[in-house]
């Protein structure tokens, strides 16, 4: 199943707010896709302050899946996105396979979403409270549980751990379990200055994310792969598209400059690719 994106630039999970905040800087419907923050079955309050600190060429973050839960999300956040015509992918995460399946059932009853992204690799303290999908077999079980409970025609994206050693193996497993595409790259497991579990995002993680992409492409040349991790400039994006990515997700760069994704769409559509950095 193809992802049917109007262009290859997507907003990465957790970096576009509820969508409305981004709309002040450009129409989110003009982007290839918008991935929501990860939604859980029950609401989650997330981590305490400080939640985000700047690091060299990156951000360490311990937001810990702060989200309103699937029911509030469906009532208060998704309708606006669909009304605006935003190509919306809902990121989901669960504590058990049963929770993943339950979220998928509730999303499946909602017409209009472009796909579901299964978050298999939260990097912060949330990792200890969600279903452990470090083993490719377990990652595949999660994808199968979500896939089974979604109507046909709703693509499943699997966002895998950015571990170059096992990423190809994991990608193969999730694709066999029914994923339509693999999102390669997520925040790396890291720590806040006070030692709490955190994720690390931004240009600092890009070389590793690109290595994960090349590993998956080499092992699975026919797979649909979405690249994610520290991408910010036109050059970053054209590089990963040339390496075989079908689309890209822009995350941390949006926090620095909320117009980044729209500028990338414009630059990629231009007849002669811009040489300036985005």
């Amino acid at each position: 199943m193809s992802l049917a994106l109007a262009n290859p630039v997507m907003v990465a999970s957790g970096c576009g707010g509820t969508g409305r905040e981004l709309a002040a800087y450009g129409d989110p419907a003009e982007l290839g896709g918008f991935v929501t923050r990860s939604i859980t079955l029950a609401p989650r309050a997330g981590g305490h302050q400080p939640r985000i600190v700047e690091t060299p060429s990156g951000l360490a973050h311990a937001v810990d899946l702060h989200n309103p839960g699937v029911d509030q999300f469906l009532a208060l956040e998704l309708p606006w996105l669909l009304q605006q015509g935003v190509t919306t992918f809902v990121s989901v995460v669960g504590r058990t396979l049963g929770e993943y399946a339950e979220i998928a059932r509730r999303l499946g009853r909602t017409p209009g979403i472009a796909g579901v992204e299964v978050n298999l690799s939260p990097p912060d303290a949330a990792a200890s409270s969600v279903f452990d999908a470090r083993e490719p077999f377990h990652a595949a079980s999660v994808v199968a549980a979500v896939h089974r409970d979604l109507p046909r025609g709703v693509p499943v994206l699997a966002k895998v751990r950015p571990d170059p050693v096992r990423v190809a193996e994991t990608a193969r497993a999730v694709l066999e379990a029914g994923a339509d595409a693999v999102v390669v790259g997520n925040a790396l497991p890291a720590a806040m200055p006070d030692g709490r579990d955190a994720g690390l995002s931004g240009p600092a993680v890009r070389p590793l994310a690109v290595r994960c992409l090349t590993e998956v492409r080499a092992a699975l040349p026919d797979a649909t792969v979405v690249a994610c991790g520290g991408l910010a400039t036109v050059d970053d994006v054209t590089t990963v598209l040339e390496l075989g990515a079908t689309a890209v997700q822009i995350g941390t760069a949006l926090l620095h400059d909320p117009t980044t994704a729209h500028r990338l769409v414009g630059a990629l559509a231009a007849p002669v690719a811009g040489e300036d950095e985005a």
Binding site: G14, G46, V53, H61, V63, H66
Partner: peptide
């Protein structure tokens, strides 16, 4: 302290008491 200041990252949350003594988190930036 804020990362984006535009409401995208949910980093600058503050607990506030809502109706009925229920505490919720709001973003300091938005």
């Amino acid at each position: 302290p804020m990362a984006c200041a535009t409401g995208l990252c949910h980093g600058c949350t503050v607990p506030v008491a809502g109706e009925g003594g229920h505490t919720r988190l709001v973003r300091s930036c938005t």
